[in-house]
Design a protein around this nucleic acid. Sequence first.
DNA 1: TCCAAAGATGTAGTGACTACAAGAATGGAT
DNA 2: ATCCATTCTTGTAGTCACTACATCTTTGGA
Lengths: 203, 203
Amino acid sequence: MELGRRERKKQQTRQAISDVATGLFLERGFDAVTVAEVARAADVAVQTVFNHFPAKEDLFFDEAGWWRGPARAVRAAPPDADPISVLETQYVQGTRERLAVGHLATWKQFVRTIEASPALLARRRLTAEELERSLTEALDERSPDHLKNRLTAALYAAAQKVLEEKLMAVLPDDASPDELAQAQQELEQAIAEVFAVLRRGLG
Amino acid sequence: MELGRRERKKQQTRQAISDVATGLFLERGFDAVTVAEVARAADVAVQTVFNHFPAKEDLFFDEAGWWRGPARAVRAAPPDADPISVLETQYVQGTRERLAVGHLATWKQFVRTIEASPALLARRRLTAEELERSLTEALDERSPDHLKNRLTAALYAAAQKVLEEKLMAVLPDDASPDELAQAQQELEQAIAEVFAVLRRGLG
DNA sequence: TCCAAAGATGTAGTGACTACAAGAATGGAT
DNA sequence: ATCCATTCTTGTAGTCACTACATCTTTGGA
């Protein structure tokens, strides 16, 4: 669909606010930056910020809907596929992308910013819950055992959380290619172990 | 230790505030009651409320430290016991207590109040995370495999969440003894299944 | 009886967020 | 080109949780 100038300008404003905000947050920490400051830096009214983003946290977590990935992967898989294997494959792929050169430093900085802010941590938990919900829904479409589906989704979310911690623990801030390769191997080992546990339990 | 009049009065004030607050929250919902109202109803200054409770949510979740239960159970168990079985036993016991006559209605009302409030839901998630942390610590004391311990704690928390949902889904608001017995049986069945998954995966 | 510690209170302020009433830009119709 | 309805933007005023701080009051002990 073609976007008129009005809509284009709107998106432009939105993007400008988001960019400015992200920069400030990464630089000085989420809690140390006020919405008023963001507005001033983006040269808009405070109200305009809230017109585009329902809450301050949305300025940081701007990509909407990424948490639907697992549910989508499950829906895209053939009906007889093992859900855990589908989820594992999808998770490994996602991890590889995050470890791609150039993204890594940015990613760690993002996560560190999250972990330094109670508000962002709370939001991350909320998002994880929505992931669980959507994944449960997708699983319910292929199997009638709701309790098991619900459990599968919850265990997947738990696994993801643990692996995310492992990723942060294993990766050095300044990754030389050698270190990175080794860390990546250790990480994929951990991923395999964790998903093996899930598969053994749920299989 | 003997409590002087000063300390006694302090606890008395604290209790009065907590009681008044809980009543208001259960009756009208957490978000619909302001701290100022609580203070007025308890006949104290708003500041006094915050002297005793660091945040509004603490007025609702008053029992401190119950989330350390699983960690304590693990520490209390013999070193060669299977952690999952220890946790299952502890969980079943806790559930039975909650289902005890007279407690049930109150309990459901509590949970409904939580589920109606974003702030209380966020706090519950935070508490679950602290449970995980403390449980991981306890497990680390008996086995050196940190990743597995971390995973065990995360999966336990996930299981607990799923079973809590099941409990709410299965129990009717007005439980006749018959219904309650049947619901209880269905619930314990679910508990057994869920923990069986964990045991199979982690064992 | 007097003093020091600690609890209770009141005041002022910050920061996220909402409601609402304009103001300004835009797209389309005439 | 002009006018109007839509919609994006803005400013004002207010609510609520929460903090900092100064003051007042109560209490425990010398």
